[in-house]
Nucleic acid binder design. Structure first.
Lengths: 209, 209, 209, 209
DNA sequence: TATGAATGAGCCTTCATTCAT
DNA sequence: TATGAATGAAGGCTCATTCAT
């Protein structure tokens, strides 16, 4: 299967380049990252990078969007866990909150936001595309779950979109503060504490009347 | 008083340079901002910038920190308002929340975070210095006020630091989402809506038992 | 006759490449012409070009020399016309001059000189090879004819080589000026005018005493 | 006179750059000439070249045009010599022809034509600007002189523009051929021979009836 | 002190050329 | 044999930074 192999090889190489690009961009930022270094990280020669991705700008775009897709997939998988809340709602929410915290405060998600925000002037559209994938989609999925819970009487009646937004805010806000904006890596215990506190406050505010 | 005048003139020039630097850095980001453009914006020649501030890096540091100080001053003034809560606690909190929203989502604060985060690899300490001034200090001041309110029985007993953190999270989280990460400028009404929702949820969770 | 066919196909492909190369070189000059574009113009892939012609330099050489051969053939055919001058020498010379003008000011001959002159430093020999084929050979053939005419008493006694040289100079010099160095394409009428003037002056200078 | 000195220094540097540029372009052609080498030849650093002349293209333009101006000045000075023909017209013409030959076949004039022709596709206007200065202007000045000679009865009645054109053609055409397109440098004697032959033929064709 | 001019270093990009299929 | 993909080398251009005035 000659064609398959070489087509596959080509795809692999492209993805290796994108992965390397994301790594290097995350490490140094857009301007400081050299295409040279990206090529080295991907194990290819510089022109190969250009053969696959035209431009440094294009390379950035695709690397960032590819990473964003991955994060989105993780996020959506987590929100699914609320579909079967089980008897102990608090415990389930705490678990979900913890997992979301792991993803949202994780290195990839953080780098993603950092890169997109930092290059807002050069890539004005990217910031939105990234936020959509890292936050909005998650918020929407969460809103769906909360709406069901509200309907089932396990939460008070409310605007589910707002509730989801606030749930995530209660989670990620303190996360950001506690991790000192990503400077410190949070321990599992700390993350749990933050998640539990978020859930506690959320349940107090949204418990059925 | 020739000396005083020229010392004064010197100081003015330095501040003009710092202000210009912040403007330009905010406009283009660290790497993309040229010392040339900064000098032009400040109305001086390039070497003058170097005479006053040695380095591009140094220039960045000072420009960012100066802006951070300004933001901090604004933030602290606002928190003071909670010292005399008055009879209608909800109304007072809503007012405070709205004002904080204005500052935290304002252009300077946003640029500050954006620049600091974007250059985290080059200036690892800056991110903390900025967060301290834009968020932490505000959070601390707020915690002080909330502690008093709790003691006065107008809020339930709680960890005031956590309460402050969550209050700010409920405010700035949705703010970020609604402004599409600063892409859209929020109207006064939208800002108020966000502030009121934050206060509502906060009060539900922290009302006296 | 498989072998014959494929040998023929091979030759055809080689000539297609050479033709394409000349076209592209003429269009953009040596350095600016990309092997890529030449391959595309020839309808083959880049490595095929290298399979047939080793080098870009080699490609250039062969393309230029092939074109030069074609031009030479045309030129010699024209000079033959002077072998039977007929009764009206002036008319015959005018006809010959006109045809030579057409060729020498034609696109191929012009591109040929332009390319060879422009790459004199890189291909020091080419300029001579080309001039030989586009001018010298013509001049020699012409000298032969003029010698006969002189001997026959229809021109004064003279050095036929010099006479030929001057005949061509009187023709191509004004041609170059009038066409603004090839910038403007000369109309048939203009070309005729130039040819006639050249012949007139030539005959005045070389008429029998 | 501080200002004068530094302004003068700046001008000197600019002209040094232009001269170096012309030298290097003449040596290697446009594409093959590196800005690096030009800077080195001028004794400055690469960015200095860009400070003075923006672009490689711009540098080329100015270098070529500056050289063209110089050539034009030389040419016009020579034509002036025909203003006072003296008793021996042939001798005067021979002298003028010889001097013109020296200039037109000189290195600068040759490089000028070569560069302009070679880069016709990239700088379509340059070829005309150069021809104007190296040939047309000379032709016009010469026509003026020939008109006077014709009027004075020392040449037959004729179109002076055509006569000038043909005079130059008779001179430069053979010059080109004998120097093998600039490959060989002509000796003084050879140049004289060519000039004398041109004048002889010219006088035969244009002698008063 | 403030400035116009000069510099050294570095990066993106392209292209002729060669493998591997 | 013909090709898609990969590479090594090189060049234009920019920019932070420093002299000299």
């Amino acid at each position: 299967m000659v064609t398959a192999t070489s087509a596959r090889g080509r795809i692999d190489k492209r993805q290796a380049i994108l992965a390397a690009a994301f790594t290097v961009f995350a490490r140094h930022g857009y301007d400081q990252a050299g295409v040279q270094e990206i090529a080295a990280e991907a194990g290819v020669a510089k022109p190969t990078v250009y053969n696959h991705l035209a431009d440094k700008a294009n390379l950035f775009r695709h690397a960032v969007l590819a990473a964003a897709e991955e994060v989105m997939a993780e996020n959506l998988a987590i929100a699914e866990r609320l579909r079967e809340p089980g008897g102990d709602l608090r415990a389930t929410l705490e678990d979900v909150a913890y997992r979301m915290a792991r993803v949202c405060a994780g290195e990839r998600a953080r780098a993603l936001r950092s890169l997109a925000h930092g290059q807002a002037s050069r890539f004005p559209d990217l910031i939105d595309l990234v936020r959509e994938r890292t936050s909005d989609r998650l918020s929407e999925a969460l809103a769906d779950r909360l709406a069901r819970l509200s309907l089932a009487g396990r939460l008070r009646r409310c605007d589910p979109a707002l509730a989801a937004e606030q749930f995530l805010a209660l989670l990620t806000g303190p996360l950001e503060a506690r991790s000192r904006s990503g400077t410190r890596t949070l321990s599992t215990a700390d993350t749990r504490t933050v998640a539990d506190a978020a859930v506690d406050t959320f349940l107090r505010a949204y418990r059925p009347d």
